[in-house]
């Protein structure tokens, strides 16, 4: 039995009188691929923002590998070993692909306030960048300006940057949003490849992707978890069917 890497305990978030996250209890196990699904406005992104430090929880706790991370700022959460991607592509558009990854890798080597070394001579950092380029299949485009890449390549880069800090837990927020069928298949494959042996939490609307990728699925409706289980269990759950049917009827 693997250990619990990320534990959400009675987590709540309100914006004024609006409760967006209601008493969420969830345990993510080390090494699993965990999908978060639910209708629009269910609070999936909010939950990601809470975990990654973008929002502070109103109450409850978030523990990463036993340490409380609820309420820490995003930079600290990242340094504790949790990295995320964004629903809207969030890269350094004006810099080259390799430079994007290098900025993402450098942090782990404590190279924030370094004025004396040349970036081109950082052997271990650059070796890691080359490795990442290969993993996200962008070696040939290493010197292209990131903002000039096709959309799906930008998404791959985004995933590569998320991976670069060698996190214990990766959160991917709708990595396939706006992709064609072929691109989605390509990216699903990529995600499966690069998250092997890591813990992944993913928000995605494409059910085919979810059911092929996820080990377990959590369904969120109106800020509450209504079910957590294997893809098989979720498919057969009456509550889930009801929630989704209700959504379609409404």
């Amino acid at each position: 039995m693997s250990r619990d890497i990320l534990v959400l305990d009675h987590l709540c978030k309100s914006f004024g009188p609006v409760e967006v996250t209601r008493d969420v209890n969830l345990v993510i196990r080390e090494g699993e691929r965990h999908a978060l699904i639910g209708p629009n406005g269910a609070g999936k992104s909010t939950l990601f923002h809470l975990i990654s430090g973008n929002y502070k929880p109103t109450s409850g706790s978030i523990r990463l590998d036993g340490d409380e991370i609820g309420g820490l700022d995003p930079a600290r959460v990242n340094r504790r070993g949790l990295a995320r991607s964004f629903q809207i592509t969030n890269i350094f558009s004006g810099l080259s692909v390799a430079e994007n990854l290098r900025l993402a890798v450098m942090r782990r080597y404590g190279l924030q306030f370094n004025f004396w070394r040349r970036v081109t001579h950082l052997r271990r950092v650059n070796a890691e960048v080359d490795d990442l380029l290969q993993k996200i299949r962008l070696t040939a485009k290493a010197r292209s300006i990131a903002g000039d890449l096709p959309y799906s390549d930008q998404r791959s880069l985004e995933i590569g940057m998320t991976l670069a800090s060698d996190p214990k837990v990766i959160l991917l927020d709708e990595p396939m949003a706006g992709m064609s069928h072929e691109e989605t298949e390509y990216t699903t494959d990529l995600i499966r490849d690069i998250t092997a042996g890591r813990t992944l939490m993913i928000v995605e609307h494409d059910m085919d992707v979810i059911f092929t990728l996820a080990d377990r699925i959590t369904v969120l409706v109106y800020g509450e978890i209504i079910a957590t289980g294997t893809p098989q269990q979720i498919r057969e759950s009456a509550r889930v069917k009801e929630a989704y049917l209700g959504e379609e009827a409404g």
Partner: peptide
């Protein structure tokens, strides 16, 4: 040319 200089671009 340094790590700091590149972060400034970031």
């Amino acid at each position: 040319l340094t790590p700091f200089g590149r972060l400034v671009l970031g």
